[in-house]
């Protein structure tokens, strides 16, 4: 049975999750990938927030606390009334955010990151320290996940381009699997170690 998570998510709810748990996520979350992570680190985490960026900083501070970042560059349709719709919205490879992720989680109080492929030690340590998890969505399942994105509420930094902008979306029953929990466990480390042992066996034949 899948665990239901609703934004805002508490630390207790996160600490109760273990690697392998299936999750269905509800609530308002933000997409963010390469340009967005670099931007958050340079302007907010390490930088002193230039005046021009203050408005979006307030939006992110309020919106990300207890919420979720989704590594995703969607296909988006703009309707005649100006409203946006997610047409296809599967996860992108998360490892590119490894240098930034733990600091972004800590700075904004993010409770979960959704992506694919998993992340490494720095993010795993960040999850443990701040009470966060890494949720793995199914890579390529873009139409199905697009259907879970019920509403596009806003977009920020659209000048980064459609895939790289921050999209504020409301999701319902977004299916994910916990592959890195807040206790230092990672399915990715485990699978990699097992596959390395298998590789040595195959090469020794």
């Amino acid at each position: 049975m899948a665990t239901k998570l609703t934004v805002p998510i508490s630390e207790d709810e996160i600490r109760a999750l273990k690697v392998g748990d299936q999750v269905l996520l509800d609530g308002v979350i933000f997409t963010a990938r390469d340009a967005a992570h670099k931007y958050m680190i340079e302007n907010f985490v390490r930088g002193t927030c230039p005046d021009a960026e203050k408005e979006i900083y307030e939006v992110l501070k309020a919106g990300l606390k207890g919420s979720v970042l989704y590594h995703c560059g969607p296909v988006v349709k703009k309707h005649d009334d100006g409203k946006y719709e997610f047409i296809a919205a599967g996860p992108t490879t998360s490892i590119r955010e490894e240098p930034y992720q733990a600091d972004v989680i800590g700075h904004f109080g993010v409770r979960a990151v959704i992506g694919k492929g998993g992340m490494r030690d720095k993010t795993l340590a960040g999850c443990k320290e701040h009470g966060a998890v890494y949720l793995h969505a199914i890579g390529g399942a873009a139409t199905l996940i697009g259907e879970c994105c019920k509403e596009v509420l806003d977009v920020y930094k659209l000048d980064f381009g459609v895939p790289e902008a921050f999209w504020k979306i409301r999701v319902e029953d977004f299916p994910c699997v916990v592959t890195m929990d807040s206790h230092g466990n990672s399915l990715h480390t485990e699978v990699q170690a097992n596959s390395e042992a298998q590789l040595q066996k195959i090469l020794a034949k």
Binding site: A88, A89, G90, G140, A142, T143, E147
Partner: peptide
Amino acid sequence: GALLTILENVKMSRETDRPICQDT
């Protein structure tokens, strides 16, 4: 579970003419 989700997605994309994956 991953493969079943993938197969469900493939079916939905075909029925709606939407991209199988957002990374085209």
